[in-house]
Amino acid sequence: MKTVPTTPTARATAAEPPARFRDLLASEWLKLRSLRSTAWAYVIGTLVVVGFTVGATYDRYRYWNENGPVDRTDFVADGIALMYAYTTNAGLIMMLAAGAIGAVAITGEYSTGLIRTTFAAVPARRSVMAAKVCVLTAVMTVFGAVVAVLSFWLSQAILARHDAGVSLADPGALRVFVASTLLAPVCGLGGLALGAVLRHGGATMVTVVVVLLVAPLVFSEDRHWAAVVNHALPSSAWLRLVDMRYDPESGIPFPWTVPGAWTVFALWALGAAAVATLAPHRRDQ
């Protein structure tokens, strides 16, 4: 019996094209939006930050008549009204909330193992992390803007009952608004970078608190080297930008400038984005 050799027909399979960056953006947006803890963090963070601002402003409004006429006259002229547009306590809460949201955006994937699936589907890890950075930056900027608008509008509406409120057209008001808006994405990117390096939720959260909240208390401005470290922190930069009463000639040992504070904001955002993008490259997951 003669057998006729046959050659198997190769099935033509087209190579799957690499994922487009806009597809990665859509994927990261879906992952961020699907986290219930993140949605609650936005809601609770907004209520707490705005609540701190409104509470402090109402307290000043309630005891307004206990101040002398000179103090009431200088309230707006000295920029005190803008201090109630976004109080220091509200800023601290925003830094903590934004840092936590940024950390969860990456540590949540490490804890569930989803990061392995993501990198297996898209081996270009830098592209994945770059998309995550872009999505987080956009979302946190919108989040920061919403909170800043509510805080500014409500606080100045309360003060306006005593003709002490200001608008965005007043000197320094726009700077306070923009700085308070950008505080959220800067701290959010910081949390993302720390999470990409540490890859553990608990360790990342502790580090976020230490870097954003504790370090400014440790490095005082009494000595030059400590002042340099203090000024390089995002919390100190934000305080410099929103402080309309800052006087570099009032005997401050090591004063710094508004452009210097904006530079710190920019370097923190760019540095955190670079660390978050490059950290997972060639690392075992």
Rank of each mutant, 00 (worst) to 15 (best):
Y63I: 09
G79D: 12
Q285P: 01
T257C: 05
I101R: 06
A203H: 08
A26S: 12
G165V: 05
D170N: 11
A103Q: 03
V176L: 13
R282I: 00
T3M: 08
A148E: 12
L35Y: 02
G190H: 07
Y58R: 10
E28D: 14
D170C: 08
R282Y: 03
P216D: 01
A157I: 04
V166I: 04
A269L: 13
G55E: 06
L241V: 01
A97D: 00
R282M: 04
A15S: 10
V178H: 08
L114T: 14
L136S: 05
Y246P: 06
V229H: 04
V264W: 09
A157T: 14
R283Q: 14
V48P: 07
A130M: 14
D163M: 10
R72L: 12
C187P: 12
D284L: 02
R11A: 14
L267I: 14
V133G: 05
L30E: 06
V197W: 13
A276C: 02
Y84K: 06
V197G: 04
G108T: 05
A276W: 09
L96D: 05
G195E: 13
L192M: 15
F265E: 05
L32Y: 09
H200R: 14
I115V: 15
L32V: 04
S151W: 03
A81Q: 08
V128M: 02
P8M: 13
F177V: 03
L182R: 09
G172R: 10
L32H: 13
L47S: 02
D78N: 12
Y246V: 09
V229K: 00
V128W: 03
V197Q: 08
V70K: 10
R199G: 07
A261Q: 10
V49W: 01
A169S: 15
M129G: 01
V122Y: 06
V242R: 06
F21T: 07
A12I: 14
A103R: 06
L194V: 05
A169M: 03
T277K: 03
K2A: 12
V229G: 04
E109Y: 00
R282T: 06
A184C: 15
G99Q: 08
L192F: 13
T207D: 01
T7Y: 12
A226Y: 10
D59K: 13
A196L: 00
F21R: 11
R175P: 01
V178D: 04
A232Y: 04
G195W: 08
T9D: 14
I158Y: 01
V176N: 12
N230I: 08
L198T: 10
V128Q: 00
V48G: 07
A261V: 08
A164Q: 02
V208K: 11
L233E: 05
V49I: 15
E16I: 14
Y84N: 04
P280W: 05
P259I: 02
L270P: 00
R126G: 15
V178C: 01
P259C: 07
E249H: 12
